[in-house]
Amino acid sequence: ADFLSNDDYAVYVRENIQVGMMVRCCRAYEEVCEGDVGKVIKLDRDGLHDLNVQCDWQQKGGTYWVRYIHVELIGY
């Protein structure tokens, strides 16, 4: 899907992401590398560009918070 802005994409992720879902990092962020796959373990839905998504990352080996714009949804 094509999104006009980071805000549009962040809204899409916020409306669709669920705890337990698998996500792929589509934009490297601090300790999380692009392409790493993680399981969503906690969500904080306050802002669009806060650290909203806590995942247990496979490559990184452990949990880390990222923003909506850092992840793509790959289902369960």
Rank of each mutant, 00 (worst) to 15 (best):
D44W: 05
C26Q: 04
K42L: 04
D44S: 15
D44V: 14
W65C: 05
L51A: 06
S5T: 11
M21N: 01
D44P: 00
V13A: 01
C33K: 14
R27T: 13
V19H: 03
V37N: 05
Q18V: 07
A28L: 01
M22W: 15
Q58I: 05
I69M: 08
V53F: 07
H70F: 02
K60G: 09
G35L: 02
I17P: 08
G38Q: 01
F3S: 08
K39Q: 11
G62L: 07
D8E: 14
K42D: 02
G20K: 02
G61R: 09
E15P: 03
N16H: 11
V66K: 01
N16V: 05
W57Q: 00
D2K: 10
D36R: 02
L73V: 07
Y12W: 07
D56E: 14
V23A: 00
V13T: 03
I41D: 02
L73Q: 03
T63C: 12
D46E: 10
C26Y: 05
C26P: 04
L48K: 10
R27G: 06
G20L: 01
G35F: 03
A28V: 04
N6G: 14
D7K: 08
V13P: 02
I74T: 13
E72L: 02
D8S: 14
Y64L: 08
H70S: 08
G20S: 04
W65I: 01
D36M: 03
Y29G: 06
C55W: 03
V13S: 00
V37P: 00
V13Q: 03
R45T: 12
D50M: 09
E31V: 04
M21P: 03
L51V: 08
Y76A: 10
G61L: 03
N6C: 07
V13E: 06
V71A: 07
V71Q: 02
N52E: 10
K60M: 05
G75N: 07
G20I: 06
V37G: 02
C25L: 02
I69Q: 07
N6M: 15
C33D: 07
N52D: 00
G47L: 07
C25N: 03
L73M: 13
L48F: 08
K60I: 09
V66N: 04
W57C: 07
V40T: 00
E30C: 09
Y64Q: 11
Y29P: 02
K60D: 01
Y68L: 04
D7P: 06
D46K: 15
G61C: 12
D8A: 15
W57P: 05
V13D: 05
L51T: 04
G47M: 14
R45C: 11
D50K: 04
R27A: 08
N6S: 13
Q59N: 06
D44A: 14
A28K: 12
E15F: 02
C33V: 14
N16S: 06
G47C: 06
Y68Q: 02
Y64K: 10
Q18F: 07
E30A: 10
K42Y: 11
V19E: 14
I74H: 13
C33G: 14
V32Q: 00
D50E: 12
R24C: 02
C33T: 10
H49D: 04
V23Y: 01
D36K: 04
V32K: 01
V66P: 00
M21C: 10
N52V: 11
R67E: 11
K60N: 11
I69V: 12
H70G: 03
D7T: 11
V71L: 13
R24T: 10
I17L: 11
E30M: 12
Y76V: 09
Q58H: 06
Y68N: 10
E34T: 11
G62H: 06
V32F: 04
L51N: 04
Y29W: 08
G75L: 04
D46R: 12
N16R: 10
L4P: 08
R24K: 11
I74S: 11
R27K: 12
V19T: 08
Q18D: 09
Q58D: 14
Q18C: 13
N16W: 03
G62E: 07
E34K: 07
E72D: 09
E31I: 01
R45H: 15
V19P: 09
V66R: 00
A10E: 10
A28S: 10
G47I: 08
N6L: 13
D36T: 00
N6H: 15
Q59P: 04
C26I: 11
R27F: 06
I69E: 14
V71Y: 00
A10C: 05
L43V: 15
V11D: 10
E34M: 08
W65A: 11
L48G: 11
N52L: 06
E34A: 10
K60F: 12
Q59M: 04
I17M: 08
Y76I: 13
S5F: 03
E30S: 09
R24L: 01
N16T: 08
A28E: 12
R27M: 09
S5D: 13
L48Q: 13
C26V: 13
L4V: 14
M21V: 04
E30P: 06
M22D: 07
I17D: 12
V11R: 15
W57T: 07
T63W: 06
E31N: 12
M22V: 10
A10D: 06
C33W: 06
L43Y: 01
Y68C: 08
M21T: 04
L43A: 03
D2S: 12
L51Q: 02
N6P: 14
D46A: 15
V13N: 02
D36F: 01
M21R: 05
Y64S: 12
L51K: 05
Q58R: 10
C26F: 08
E31T: 13
I41Y: 04
G75V: 03
I41T: 14
R27W: 07
G38W: 01
G62Y: 05
V40Q: 01
G75Q: 08
V23G: 01
F3A: 02
E72A: 07
K60P: 07
R67L: 01
C33L: 07
Y12D: 09
G38Y: 02
L73G: 05
G47R: 06
R45K: 08
E34F: 08
Y29D: 14
V11N: 14
S5M: 15
R67Y: 00
G38F: 01
H49G: 14
G75P: 13
L73S: 01
K39M: 14
F3L: 10
D56I: 05
E72N: 03
R27D: 09
D44Y: 06
R45P: 10
R24Y: 01
D8Y: 05
W57L: 01
L4D: 04
G35C: 02
Y76M: 10
L4R: 12
G20F: 03
G20Y: 03
K42I: 02
I69P: 11
Y12V: 03
W57V: 00
D8C: 10
Q58E: 10
D44H: 15
G20D: 04
E34H: 11
A28P: 10
I17E: 01
A28Q: 13
I74P: 15
C26A: 09
E30H: 09
D7F: 02
V19A: 07
Y76G: 15
Y29Q: 06
E34Y: 15
L51F: 08
V71I: 14
H49P: 02
G62W: 00
V19L: 13
V40W: 00
R27S: 11
D46V: 10
Y29R: 03
I74A: 14
D7L: 05
D8Q: 12
Y64P: 00
V66Y: 04
D56Y: 10
R14L: 05
C26M: 13
E15N: 11
G47Y: 02
D2V: 06
F3H: 04
I17H: 01
K39N: 09
C33H: 05
L43F: 08
Q58G: 09
R67Q: 15
C25M: 07
K60Q: 10
